[in-house]
C-alpha cells in the first residue's frame, strides 16, 4: 500500500537479489496509492476520464488531497497463482492453460507476467518477465498432482507482486479448498492488507464457500469470480484483465493521521452516484503485536 521509500524503490528496480541486501525499509508512509475501479453501478460499465479533483479520499475519516490519478499509464505486473493439485487433472488443466494463454495474449508489450503453481508444493514456473513466451512455455510444462496449498501459493504470488514496483495484479485460481498450506489465512490476509497488490480470485463453484479467496479479494480491492465450469475460465481471466485496465491509481500523501497501524480508507466520487471498488484500508509499518488493530 505504501509507495516505497527511496531505498526500497532503488533496490527493486534492479531485481530481487539486490533487494535482499537492502536494510529494513522505512516505516514512514510517504505516499499511499490506491487502486480504484469506478463504475456507474455494481457490475456496470466503468466510468472513465476522471481526474484528481473527482475523487474524495478519507484516511481514517480524515479528508486527503488526491495528488495524482493515473490511468493506463503504468505497465502491469500480472502474477498467475494457479492451483495445480489433483483436482485440476484432465480437462480442467487444459482449460486453465488455455485461459492463461488468453490472458497473456491480452498483455501489452511492457506488461510483465509471472507464474506460480501450487499443489502442496509451491513452485515458481516463471519469474516476472516481459518475455511472455517464457511464461507460455512454463504453462505448457504444468501438470496436476497432489494436495492444495492455496494459502501458501497465494502468499508466494503476492510476494512476487511486491518484488517489483509495477502495478501488481494477482490472479488466484483454485477449484477446491486448502488442504496443505503451512501458512494460515489470517497471516496471508494480514500480509495482503500491507500490500499494494490487487488480488482477483477465480474459483469453481462448489458446496464449499471460497472464504479465503473472498476475503483476499475484498481486502485488496479486487473481485471474486465464481464460475460454474472451467470451460468458462478463459472468459473470466480476460475479463479480469480488462477490468483491471480500467482502474485508476489514486495517490495521496497522508496528512493528519497516525503513521502506523490500520488505516480505514473511504473512496468516493464527488457529485455523482457511482460504485467504487477499492481496498477497505491499509496497514502501515510493522506491528509490535500481532493482530493489532486489524479489521475482522
Amino acid at each position: 500500500m505504501k509507495v516505497p521509500a527511496l531505498s526500497m524503490a532503488a533496490a527493486l528496480l534492479i531485481g530481487t537479489q539486490l533487494a535482499a541486501q537492502q536494510p529494513m525499509f522505512s516505516t514512514r508512509v510517504e505516499a499511499v496509492r490506491v487502486d480504484v475501479l469506478v463504475t456507474d453501478r455494481e457490475n456496470g460499465p466503468a466510468l472513465l476520464g476522471l481526474g484528481p479533483d473527482d475523487f474524495d479520499v478519507l484516511d481514517n475519516g480524515v479528508p486527503q488531497k488526491v495528488e495524482l490519478v493515473s490511468f493506463e499509464q503504468i505497465p502491469l505486473n500480472v502474477i498467475l497463482a494457479l492451483d495445480l493439485s489433483d483436482s485440476v487433472e484432465g480437462d480442467r488443466l487444459e482449460h486453465l492453460q488455455a485461459a492463461s494463454s488468453a490472458l497473456i495474449n491480452g498483455l501489452e508489450k511492457d506488461d510483465q507476467v509471472a507464474l506460480v503453481g501450487f499443489s502442496h508444493v509451491v513452485t515458481l514456473g516463471a519469474a516476472l518477465t516481459s518475455d511472455h513466451s517464457k511464461v507460455r512455455q512454463a504453462l505448457g510444462d504444468t501438470f496436476a498432482s497432489g494436495d492444495t496449498a492455496l494459502i501458501d501459493g497465494t502468499f508466494a504470488g503476492m510476494m512476487i507482486g511486491e518484488s517489483d514496483v509495477g502495478r501488481g495484479l494477482l490472479i488466484v485460481f483454485s477449484d477446491g479448498v486448502d488442504t496443505a498450506s503451512w501458512l494460515t489465512p489470517d497471516k496471508v490476509l494480514d500480509a495482503a492488507r500491507r500490500s499494494d497488490v490487487v488480488a482477483y480470485g477465480v474459483v469453481v463453484q462448489s458446496r464449499n464457500k471460497p472464504e479465503f479467496v473472498r476475503e483476499l479479494t475484498s481486502a485488496t480491492g479486487g473481485r471474486l469470480y465464481e464460475i460454474e465450469r472451467t470451460s468458462a475460465l478463459d472468459k473470466a481471466f480476460v475479463q479480469v484483465l480488462e477490468e483491471f485496465r480500467q482502474r485508476y491509481l489514486v495517490s495521496y500523501t497522508p496528512r493528519g493521521v497516525e503513521p502506523t497501524g490500520w488505516h480505514r480508507l473511504t473512496v468516493s466520487i464527488k457529485g455523482r452516484r457511482a460504485t467504487v471498488r477499492a481496498r477497505p484500508g491499509y496497514l502501515a509499518g510493522p506491528v509490535s503485536t500481532p493482530d493489532a488493530a486489524l479489521p475482522r
Binding site: 530481487t16 537479489q17 537492502q22 536494510p23 525499509f25 510476494m159 518484488s163 503451512w182 501458512l183 510493522p286
Partner: peptide, 23 residues
C-alpha cells in the same frame, strides 16, 4: 514460508524476498 511471512510482518521486505527466493 514462515520466515518470509515473519519478515514481512516485521516490515523487513528485503529479508522476506530473500526467504521467498529460497522457496
Amino acid at each position: 514460508l514462515a520466515l518470509t511471512e515473519l519478515a514481512r510482518r516485521r516490515g523487513n521486505r528485503a529479508a522476506a524476498l530473500r526467504s521467498m527466493q529460497e522457496v
